[in-house]
Design a binder for these strands. Structure first.
Length: 660
DNA sequence: GGTTGATCATTACC
DNA sequence: CGGTAATGATCAAC
């Protein structure tokens, strides 16, 4: 089964332009949903989708209770369904607006779950709650799913960090993903354990994953390896084996080029093992389940494994929604044995997840195929890759004039911290180099994983700088190495211009720094309030705290506490991107963002300069708007009541504070 | 750079 | 209830 699509197999004429134009609901397609009611650690980028004004975009779960889109299914299945009261209603796609609601049928009743502990407070950052109630483990919702995923990746990054630091290759945590998954599973930090046919509560169409264990802990696909998940259901007389979900990721010679059709190979018969010949597949286990589901007309969840554009070695798993099996047959496989083949058709009314991925591939081949393209590169070559400018919603030809500059500019001698010296390493600084002074300043831990993801939020991250003699390719310079993902500036429906990515983004990925001119706070005040908020970054604003780092108590022999997530900057830093700036000036505010900022410092000419670096809070699907928390402007002593400099927030997330 | 082998975690099944 | 077979991704070693 598993066979994907590196995208090379598509003949050029197979791509229908009208289809490209048809994928309009881009913004709503992979919406990073709003986060929990007060959710501090939930990311989300509410959809700014094409909604009629006045429509509250995000109530995925307030679906008519009686809504039932599928024809009546045979007894055993219906029994199963009744066990899952909140069911996806979006797959029938009543309207365009329902797409954003595509939290995969997540079943969160509109206003329940106030009692979910981990999302209930407003105060300072709370720790993750250790486990879940049995209810939360059985049936999830998107808050729980978010929580589990965030904790999984935090733990995984920490294990990677520990692994990277080991000099020897023995006795190490070889697979941080498996280790992290194992810990969460054994501690009961998981959800949707109850197996179900159809949509899984809290899992959204287009949602992306980077490890099979992630599918496991959120109950999208239980087997840690196998491509077919299934259950046995007791019918009236005999029991039936029914398929639940499949992962198509390239292990078998599947055909997975079409957005709505998938030819999936059955399991078994592979000549994995040394002395084993390729054998004929048997009608058992997963194969039997798919066969039964074909005859029963059951929905099957499909997860497609795609090649990651950023790191070609990695794989991205994309939840592609519900399919039904149309037919099955047997044929000779390449290795000689005969194998089962299943033809799956995608149910109508679901957002075009796979088609969007295909479109993006096209855009990368030739920018002219990008609808609404205004400028191929807004940065005019100033960045390591082009930043396209796109407007698909109205006639505006671009944002107001500014000068593109990729980093922050300090005026004359603006010293923030005491002068410090760089390291003395003469090659590339590595996680294991204990005498690198830059690493020592980080508390002895290398702040990034081998593939450049930030491990933990900290009060300050110390990178090697221009004055360090280490190689320019030293991995402790992540925020200085330019853009890693292909960004696009686009016109939003109601919030001006925004920023999003063509590439899927892993949690912890560096996105960009906040470029602009460092300014003196007093001068800003004098220049009038209009300058507030408009392309200005200000560390002195009040920011919602949230938990992102790993939980030390989940790691054996982890003595030191996880790094603090409260930033500590000696004096306020204000950066204006009004006249000079980079892509960061287009990032909009959200009360439940998918990006956060992190102070980073490195040394240059014996002075340390502070930079504001943005990192992904969660995995972000392609074309999802990138947002961060603008914070709340401090109320000035003199003028009370209506806070000066505050703006009405249009982020639309359930826990929107109303202003920022 | 492609191939091969060993390992890994989970669950169904015996 | 306890053991194990089956499964695929990953990395190391070739």
């Amino acid at each position: 089964m598993e066979g994907v699509t590196d995208g090379n197999g598509v003949p050029p004429n197979a791509f229908d332009k009208s289809k490209i134009l048809d994928v309009k609901p881009l913004r709503s397609l992979a919406p990073v949903f709003p986060d929990g009611p007060q959710g501090q650690y939930f990311v989300c980028a509410p959809p700014f989708g094409p909604f009629p004004s006045g429509f509250t975009p995000f109530y995925p779960f307030s679906v008519p209770p009686g809504f039932q889109s599928e024809p009546e299914t045979p007894t055993p299945i219906r029994l199963f369904r009744t066990a899952v009261p909140h069911f996806s209603a979006t797959r029938n796609g009543e309207s365009g607006a329902s797409m954003d609601a595509s939290r995969g049928g997540s079943g969160k009743p509109p206003r329940k779950n106030r009692d979910v502990q981990f999302s209930s407070g407003k105060g300072p950052a709370k720790d993750f709650k250790l486990g879940f109630s049995s209810t939360e483990r059985d049936d999830g919702n998107w808050e729980v799913v978010e929580n589990v995923l965030m904790r999984f990746d935090a733990l995984r990054r920490r294990f990677s960090q520990l692994e990277d630091a080991k000099e020897t290759t023995s006795g190490i945590i070889r697979r941080a993903d498996l280790k992290a998954g194992n810990v969460l599973m054994s501690k009961g930090i998981r959800t949707n354990m109850k197996k179900r046919i159809g949509a899984v509560p809290g899992i959204q169409y287009g949602e992306i994953f980077f490890f099979r264990m992630e599918l496991c802990v959120v109950g999208l696909h239980a087997p840690s390896m196998g491509g077919i998940d299934y259950i046995n259901v007791r019918g009236n007389s005999e029991q039936e084996t029914l398929a639940l979900s499949i992962v198509s990721s390239g292990g078998y010679d599947d055909e997975a080029e079409d957005a709505d059709v998938l030819i999936y190979s059955g399991q078994g018969g592979n000549a994995y093992y040394k002395d084993k010949e390729a054998a004929d597949q048997k009608l058992e286990r997963g194969n039997l389940a798919l066969e039964t589901s074909l005859h029963r007309g059951n929905e099957v969840r499909v997860v497609r494994g795609m090649k990651d554009a950023v790191s070609t070695k990695a794989k991205v798993y994309v939840y592609d929604g519900l399919y039904k099996i149309q037919e099955s047959w047997m044929e000779k496989g390449k290795s000689g044995g005969s194998m089962f083949k299943y033809k799956l058709l995608r149910l109508p009314g679901q957002p075009d997840v796979f088609a969007l991925w295909k479109s993006i591939e096209k855009w990368k081949e030739g920018l002219s195929s990008r609808p609404g393209l205004i400028l191929p590169d807004l940065a005019s070559g100033a960045e390591s890759m082009p930043v396209s400018l796109v407007n698909e919603v109205d006639d505006e030809k671009g944002p107001a004039y500014f000068t593109y500059f990729p980093t922050v500019k300090y005026s004359k001698s603006f010293k923030l911290l005491h002068p410090s010296f760089g390291c003395n390493c003469h090659s590339a600084c590595a996680p294991g180099s204990t005498n690198c002074s830059c690493i020592q300043k980080n508390g002895g831990d290398f702040p990034y994983t081998a593939n450049f993801n930030l491990v933990s939020r900290k009060s300050l991250v110390y990178e090697c700088g221009p004055s360090c003699p280490c190689f320019p390719n030293c991995k402790n310079r992540v925020s200085q190495m330019g853009l890693k993902v292909r960004l696009e500036i686009f016109k939003t429906r109601d919030r001006g211009w925004g920023l999003r990515s063509w590439d899927p983004i892993r949690a912890g990925t560096f996105i960009c720094e906040y470029a602009g001119e460092v300014i003196d706070k007093i001068n800003t005040r004098q220049s009038g309030e209009d300058d507030h908020n408009e392309h200005v970054f200000d560390t002195s604003r009040t920011y919602q705290s949230f938990r992102w780092n790993f939980e030390p108590e989940l790691i054996e022999e982890e003595s030191p506490p996880a790094p603090t997530e409260e930033f500590d900057i000696p004096s306020p830093l204000i950066i204006s991107a009004k006249n000079i700036g980079n892509v960061a000036r287009f990032m909009n505010h959200s009360c439940s963002p998918n990006v956060f900022w992190q102070p980073v410092i490195y040394e240059h000419n014996n002075e340390s300069f502070l930079h504001i670096a943005f990192f992904a809070k969660r995995h972000i699907p392609p074309m999802t708007e990138l947002t961060y928390d603008y914070g709340i402007a401090p109320t000035d002593g003199e003028s009370n009541s209506t806070p000066s400099g505050r703006k009405k927030c249009l982020c639309g997330s359930p826990q929107c504070r109303g202003y920022y």
